[in-house]
Design a protein around this nucleic acid. Structure first.
Ligand SMILES: [Mn+2]
Ligand SMILES: [Mn+2]
Ligand SMILES: [Zn+2]
Ligand SMILES: [Zn+2]
Lengths: 146, 146
DNA sequence: GTTAAATATGATATTGATAATCATTATCTA
DNA sequence: TAGATAATGATTATCAATATCATATTTAAC
């Protein structure tokens, strides 16, 4: 199923409508490969159709997240960031506190241990956020050299 | 060293001053045992001294975090939350998506595996945020009963 | 203790992200 | 194709957090 079909099914299920602005925002989002803010997404969508409104972008990215096409990444700064979620395996982030470089990783030992925590407390898992902060090799070298 | 002394040392080190509003905010913070927002902290501080300004609370809680007395917990809703960090062992949070119930935990297997991730990518650790989301036993029961 | 330099305060205005409102327009179903 | 319904985009509102700035405190030097 294509991303567009996923969205159509999600909308139809709840009596909502597929529209051309929504398609534009989806296309813009799919072309951006990494963590994007609503503002960046608005700019990208307007490159396709300059008439797109800001409110529509906020509404649509939320819709994409609900439909399972986008996923919210923990915000570093003020603005929320979204990344692709459909046919992208779950992963977490290792972020450099100095330059902001991001490494995506998935660690099976961590994922297993997280499941054990859920079990231990009788919680039913519904996702997690994990962000490891640190100093990347380049920044460590730069700061050592002072 | 008391929390107050920690703050005094931190301030003196950078030519800043210990003041009575800062002491009030610190006292209010120390009495609140759990994750608080700036707004809640303002209310608590005003119970001690009604003249405290909102800006001072925002400024002071940031100061407390820098001094190692407070730690920012990942925000569930809009507002940032802070918890005690001095003489409190590091821990992560398991949060119910339905009722907001929070379990604090520390899992050595996860912590160890996180260190391995840092090593694998050559990053120097400087802290992490992890929040496990799920449905607590009570909410699971309630939703099963429909 | 008095004083002067420096910093802090609190009232207020401002920002920046997101949400709500609403008159108009587009979509979908029958 | 028409009519019911939902979506759009311009605008306004909200809310946390910051910036501004005149006044007040603190501190260190006399
Ligand atoms: Mn990612
Ligand atoms: Mn906690
Ligand atoms: Zn770096
Ligand atoms: Zn619950």
């Amino acid at each position: 199923m294509s991303e567009r079909e996923v969205l159509e099914v999600y909308l139809r299920e709840r009596g909502q409508k597929m529209t051309s602005p929504r398609e534009t925002v989806l296309d813009a989002f799919l072309k951006l490969e990494r963590h994007v803010t609503a503002e960046e997404l608005l700019a990208a969508a307007r490159r396709i159709d300059p008439g797109i409104g800001q409110a529509t972008v906020f509404r649509t990215i939320k819709l994409l997240a609900e439909a399972g096409l986008a996923r919210e990444a923990c915000p570093d700064d003020g603005a929320r960031r979204f990344e692709h979620a459909y046919r992208h395996e779950h992963h977490d982030h290792l972020v450099c506190v100095e330059c902001g470089a991001v490494v995506e990783f998935k660690d099976e030992a961590i994922e297993r241990a997280q499941q054990a925590v859920y079990r231990r407390h009788g919680y039913a898992p519904s996702g997690h956020r994990m962000e490891l902060l640190g100093l990347c090799p380049d920044c460590a070298k730069a700061s050592k050299r002072k």
